[in-house]
């Protein structure tokens, strides 16, 4: 269903999205548009600035203390707000990050997190699977990327958990590893922002719950051998989203 349906003014769809009156499909359509078109993201942000002050008079209410504990748990922080030290390669990521990441490079991420409705990533009951997802983690369980596969549109969005600039001369390459098979190159992914990758039919055919995704560090431009040549820095199994 198209969100534009009976709207003569395209602007209205963004206003309606922000107000919250669209149904799940229409929301997903607007979110998709904001993901892919900068003008749409800007229009959406303008309506957020216009309407969010409405929330101001809502009475504040302190949540129960266990909510913070759960958040820390989910993020693998300890409740005092410190994280267990990271011991491996990704320690360096922290250093890279301290060098600073341009806000411009980050603006796309905003579109993703704010616009992508959770519902769109869930399997609709009774329908065939439309989305699959994988959390790519380091060996110590810290999430580094979330990959969401949109089967209907044959594409994958890979979002870094903690955006960071790439170490110079190195790049991250994503691999699909079907059970018992050799890794198949999926594409290069950014460390500092979401990457959208179109999935060809060969890749689509291999996606499934027995396959894994993995990221290796490669020379800029990708592995020269067609197989992972550098260290595998994160991996994760594919599941229904």
């Amino acid at each position: 269903m198209s969100a534009s349906g009976d709207n003569e003014q395209p602007e209205l769809r963004f206003a309606e999205y922000v107000l919250g009156v669209l149904d799940a499909d229409e929301r997903a359509a607007v979110a998709h548009e904001a993901e892919t078109r900068a003008e749409a993201a800007i229009a959406l942000q303008a309506w957020q600035r216009r309407l969010m002050p409405l929330a101001e008079p809502i009475a504040a209410l302190a949540p129960a203390p266990y909510v913070w504990a759960r958040i820390c748990d989910a993020l693998q922080m300890n409740a005092s707000g410190r994280i267990a030290p990271r011991r491996n390669l990704w320690n360096d990521l922290r250093l890279w990050r301290s060098l600073g990441v341009g806000a411009l490079a980050m603006s796309l991420v905003l579109a993703f997190v704010l616009m992508m409705p959770l519902a769109a990533r869930r399997t609709r009951p009774g329908n065939r699977i439309e989305y699959m997802a994988a959390t790519l983690q380091q060996t110590d369980g810290v999430a580094e990327w979330t990959a969401t596969m949109d089967l209907r549109h044959a594409r994958m969005v890979v979002v870094p958990a903690t955006p960071a600039p790439a170490p110079s001369g190195r790049a991250a390459e994503l691999w699909l590893i079907p059970a018992g098979e050799k890794p198949v190159a999926v594409g290069m992914i950014a460390l500092d922002r979401p990457t959208t990758i179109a999935l060809n039919s060969a890749l689509m055919a291999r996606l499934g719950p027995t396959a894994m995704l993995a990221v290796s560090l490669e020379p800029a431009g990708g592995s020269p051998t067609g197989e992972p040549s550098g260290p595998v820095v994160a991996k994760g199994a594919i599941g229904a989203a």
């Binding site: 990441v101 603006s107 993703f112 519902a119």
Partner: peptide, 28 residues
């Protein structure tokens, strides 16, 4: 890291995020 104070204040960013999550939940 995607927050850009030049585009919207933290309150707008935070309220938008929580409302979107709440609306997703309502639709589910």
């Amino acid at each position: 890291a995607s927050f850009d104070a030049a585009k919207a204040g933290a309150i707008t960013w935070l309220v938008t995020l929580s409302r979107n999550k709440a609306i997703d939940r309502l639709r589910q």
